[in-house]
Design a binder for these strands. Structure first.
Length: 262
DNA sequence: ATGGTAGGGATCCTA
């Protein structure tokens, strides 16, 4: 039995509810990890999503951030935020077990610009997350950490290396912070799949700026990732980006990332 | 170096 897991920064679930519903019907993922829902829990549009056949776990706040997990299977052991999170009021982490796989929907802070207070907050968030994810590794479970990490790990994940070499989303210090977390024992599913099958890295971009026709010129970055435990990596069948969704009318600036577990 | 676009919700903040 295969399991299709998606991660998508939807950039307001209320603005894009119609797109989400038709996308669920077209792609039929078993599990969806959403970021930037931008809605309080009491205003989350549960009904249409449940009518499409999904159970829902949510962790929202007003205007900013917000994460959610949708699953065709029951959602068990739901955890809101993570132990050691600096500011739990920022809705950036939601974890649950579904169909015997532990999944997390993660929204790492953007950081604004290198050196900014928000950049330092981003680095602290990653360090705190590192400690939590190390604890998760000791469970020896199938675990999928999906989300918007707001970091392009390697030069091949950026359309213009020079332009981004010391900039937010690709600066060496934030890359190192993500590398430290990953190297503790997680597998970057898309990077591994791209390399193993010698695929064009450009086809793994997940985000295109709304400005200056970035999408039309494929000026993208790979900043949304699945970090998976070794037990889950053994089951990976396919990894890809549903870039078609970025071409929608009034799209999110992110495309969904898709992972198939055998 | 600047400012370009989008969403939320308030006339600016975040990305």
């Amino acid at each position: 039995m295969t399991m299709l897991i998606a991660s998508w920064n939807i950039n307001s679930i209320r603005t894009r509810l119609d797109q989400l519903i038709s996308w669920l019907q077209k792609v039929s993922p078993d599990v969806v990890l959403l970021q930037e829902t931008k809605v309080l829990d009491e205003a989350f549009p549960r009904e249409f999503i449940e009518d499409s056949g999904y159970n829902i776990a949510i962790h929202g706040q007003k205007s900013y951030n917000g994460v959610a997990i949708l699953s065709k299977y029951p959602l068990e052991d739901v955890q809101v935020g993570f132990s050691g999170q600096e500011d739990p009021a920022q809705a950036r982490y939601l974890e649950a077990v579904t169909n015997q796989v532990r999944v997390a929907s993660i929204y790492v802070p953007n950081g604004q610009e290198v050196g900014h207070d928000k950049y330092l907050y981003k680095l602290r968030f990653l360090d705190n997350l590192y400690h939590h994810t190390n604890t998760l590794l000791t469970l020896n479970e199938k675990i999928i950490l999906g989300g918007d990490y707001n970091i392009a790990p390697f030069d091949q994940d950026v359309y213009d290396v020079k332009k981004f070499q010391d900039r937010i989303l690709a600066s060496p210090v934030e890359r190192q912070a993500l590398r430290k977390l990953t190297n503790a024992g997680w597998i970057d599913a898309a990077a591994a799949y791209q390399k193993a099958h010698d695929l064009n890295p450009e086809t793994f971009y997940t985000w295109w700026d709304y400005r200056q026709g970035s999408w039309e010129q494929n000026r993208g970055l790979r900043i949304d990732h699945f970090l998976v435990s070794p037990q889950a990596a053994d089951c990976i069948d396919k990894v890809g980006v549903d870039a078609e969704t970025r071409g929608n009318t009034r799209p999110s600036d992110h495309a969904p990332v898709l992972l198939t577990l055998a």
